[in-house]
């Protein structure tokens, strides 16, 4: 399964955080891969409308999440504004966000080592 996760909007614009995070479950540790696949299934991802639903009137600084999942011949995209009400979809986004954070942490560490 291949996943692509993108975050935009929010209180300020950070070009470095806009780049999508791409994940191939085949390249993950088994436990992490299983967890992501489970999140996709529990969110009934492929049955969801693409969205995004309009955020509440007058709202501001909300982030917009875009999740793309490719599984064999299937491909589907879901776009949703925070706060994500549906717990199953939220769990998927939290898992992807955690992954994005871990990648950034690695990048930051690399950067600081490169400085030395």
């Amino acid at each position: 399964m291949r996943l692509k996760f993108r975050t935009e909007g929010g209180f300020a614009s950070f070009p470095g955080l806009r780049a999508p995070v791409e994940i191939d479950t085949g390249e993950l540790q088994e436990e992490e891969a299983t967890e992501l696949v489970r999140c996709v299934e529990e969110a009934r991802f492929f049955q969801r409308p693409e969205g995004p639903e309009e955020p509440p009137p007058g709202s501001a600084d909300l982030r917009l999440y875009t999740v793309e999942v490719e599984e064999g011949a299937w491909s589907h995209t879901v776009r949703v504004y925070e706060p994500v009400g549906d717990p199953a979809l939220r769990a998927l986004i939290d898992a992807l966000d955690a992954r994005a954070k871990a990648l950034r942490r690695a990048r930051r560490k690399q950067g600081s080592e490169g400085d030395r």
Binding site: G10, F11, P55, P56, P57, G58, S59, A60, D61, L62, R63, E82, P83, D94, K101
Partner: peptide, 16 residues
């Protein structure tokens, strides 16, 4: 709000 949540927003009725 949330865990390690990196945003603040106005949802039309409240500040989070």
């Amino acid at each position: 709000f949330g865990v390690d949540y990196t945003n603040a927003f106005w949802d039309g009725t409240r500040m989070v």
